[in-house]
Computed example of a mutant assay.
Amino acid sequence: MAKKENIIASVLAFEKKLVPSDGYFYGTNWNNRAEQTALKLIPKSVRGTISNRLKPAVAGDPMKLNAEVEKANLQTVDACALGEHQDTLKVGFTLKVLGGVENPSACNNETFLKSYHAVAQKYIENYGFTELAKRYALNIANARFLWRNRVGAEKIDVVVTVNDQEAVTFNAFDYPLHGFDHADGQVQNLANQIASALKGELPYLLIKVEAYALVGKGQEVYPSEELVLDKGKGEKSKILYQVNDVAAMHSQKLGNALRTIDTWYPEFDEKKTAIAIEPYGAVTNLGKAYRTPKDKKDFFTLFDKYALGEALENAEQEHYVMAVLVRGGVFGQSSKD
């Protein structure tokens, strides 16, 4: 009998099933949202102070420290802010939900494909993506996708339009960021439609999302920051994202927020914080992987068992595995191992 490690396809890929657009930034007023203007980036040239950690020899010598502090820290940076008479940020994007998780976009092993397809069909029959869909819906309702723009906002309304249906408005602060047990009728209705699309029962699901955050007149807002790999002697030390002169947020950043539903990783009881669905539970700003092969809680360890028909410990592990497949990616096993 062939070893299980040789049954896993060496070419295996899944297309993502939650497909957000970029998020566009507009300025408006809470009590008059009809008037909206696209927000543009504002270049600023500033003279900063030396604030980085210095070498002990410099920090311990007052003369050297004074000499270092006297140096001008000149910077040109991008910024973005509401207009003088605007108090509300609007962020708008669309989210397309696709079905077909049971069918990889690429797979070169027919035996594995048949086994995985049967397992995926069984998951759909047993759970119907209802748990995952509820969590995605809650992350739309709670405006997690606003990231830093959510902090300090006085009020946040999230207006959701599904296909051509009537728009529904959520008060973002009614829904917690790290708990997924509370789902009222509006959230459940949205979740049901997302689940139907993931199961393939709906041929088309497009969700239009518009978030309005009351942050204060003229306040700074925060589009995505561009990662510039080779800054060299570039003009700016911070470059923000824009599309056709409109400040914007990366679709990848929106997608990361929507899939921040993993409360099943080993340390959740201690952290009480949901993390994004990732194969190794990676949280880059903490420099930590919460799902390691050593603990056998990572995606690949669980997927290799699950896809070949072995039972996992509980439903939570099944939800996690399927959520990674909804995320999409390349998961083949190298034939050189």
Rank of each mutant, 00 (worst) to 15 (best):
K17F: 11
P43C: 06
A67F: 04
A143T: 04
L302I: 11
V162E: 02
A213M: 01
P20C: 11
E267N: 10
Q333K: 09
F303K: 05
G287S: 14
E84S: 13
Q242N: 12
V58T: 05
I275V: 08
P293M: 01
V151F: 12
Y320D: 12
A9G: 12
H319I: 14
H117P: 00
K16L: 07
N189V: 03
E102N: 15
A197Y: 12
K199E: 04
M322Q: 01
Q252D: 10
G200L: 09
F145W: 01
V221F: 05
K71V: 09
G232H: 15
Y24I: 15
L132R: 00
Q188I: 01
A323T: 12
D157K: 06
S224G: 05
Y320F: 15
V187M: 03
A282M: 10
A141N: 01
F25S: 11
I194T: 07
V58C: 02
E270V: 05
T260A: 03
D61K: 11
Q121H: 08
T260D: 01
K294Q: 10
D22N: 05
I207K: 00
F25K: 10
C80D: 15
G255C: 14
R33P: 13
S334L: 06
R47E: 08
V324M: 06
E235N: 07
V46Y: 06
S251P: 01
A120I: 13
L312A: 14
F300W: 11
L254G: 07
A307K: 10
N163C: 14
N108T: 13
E210R: 08
G185W: 04
I194N: 00
V324H: 03
A153R: 07
A323Q: 01
D174V: 11
Y280I: 13
N149M: 03
Q36D: 15
F331D: 01
R150S: 10
K3H: 04
A274R: 05
A34P: 08
K233R: 07
Q188R: 09
A311H: 12
V77I: 14
A67K: 14
T37H: 02
V324K: 02
E313Y: 15
W264E: 12
A211Q: 03
F170Q: 00
T301L: 06
N109A: 06
F268E: 02
N66S: 12
F14I: 03
P104N: 12
Y222P: 00
R144N: 13
E166G: 13
L89K: 05
G83L: 13
E278P: 06
W30D: 12
R144S: 10
H250C: 05
G218R: 05
I7G: 03
